[in-house]
């Protein structure tokens, strides 16, 4: 497919939410290594709240993303709440005035999110955070858009890049969040936030491929 509209976005996010909630225990177990072992609980709480907020309201794509961002920030709390809030803020900025999302728009959405989170949370690649999954996904989407590929192919590349990015956090020294207090001892474990971010992009890809 070349583009999706608001209704598809709602169906996609509902499917992503289902998928994310299934991984609750896995994200908790990852977080045990570096944090306090409840990342999955927080992620689940956020996606459940998002799922309940996916109503058929009369609003534009931009309004939808902005509302969902605030739902995520408030239901999750902690560090990851504002991160998801900024993620959706970025999405909202990129779809301003648009009724559909094609691959170049999707690339802009993720690029805007990268910018929002980078500034808002003062984070860069290599700090062992969710950003290490998000930033490569944005690059992959942009590259695929440049090659005129379709939406599901673009998200296929993005999911792969995000997964690769999340895997790369294993070797990193944490520079943000609670894990940073571990210093070099944080090496050898995957960052739970990066894993859940990659899972989200993977679930988006899975939904698009099934259509």
């Amino acid at each position: 497919m070349t583009e999706i509209e608001r209704n598809d976005v709602i169906l996609m996010l509902r499917s992503v939410a289902q998928e994310m909630m299934l991984h609750e225990k896995y994200f908790c177990e990852l977080d045990l290594g570096l944090g306090d072992g409840d990342h999955g609980v927080t992620v689940s709480r956020g996606w459940k709240a998002l799922s309940e907020a996916l109503t058929g309201q009369d609003e534009t794509l931009e309004e939808l993303f902005r509302r969902l961002g605030s739902v995520m920030t408030n239901s999750m709390g902690g560090t990851i709440g504002p991160i998801y809030g900024l993620l959706f803020e970025g999405f909202a900025n990129a779809v301003s005035g648009r009724e559909t999302i094609d691959l170049p728009t999707a690339a802009s959405m993720f690029e805007q999110s990268v910018q929002e989170i980078g500034t808002g949370a003062d984070v860069k690649e290599g700090m062992k955070t969710s950003f290490d999954a998000l930033a490569p996904a944005a690059c992959a989407l942009r590259q695929a858009a440049g090659e005129n590929r379709n939406l599901e192919e673009g998200f296929g590349d993005a999911a792969e890049a995000a997964e690769y990015g999340a895997q790369a956090t294993v070797k990193m020294i944490a520079k943000k969040g609670r894990a940073r207090f571990l210093g070099e001892k944080s090496v050898g474990k995957k960052d739970a936030g990066a894993a859940s971010m990659a899972a989200m992009i993977g679930a988006m890809c899975m939904y698009l491929k099934q259509q």
Partner: peptide, 28 residues
Amino acid sequence: HPVTGMQIVNLPENEIEMGMGVHGEGGG
């Protein structure tokens, strides 16, 4: 952890961890 039921700190008998944080995260 009172929600997940998972052990967030697990120390061997007769060993203590110096510099632990308030969430039980290791002090390195």
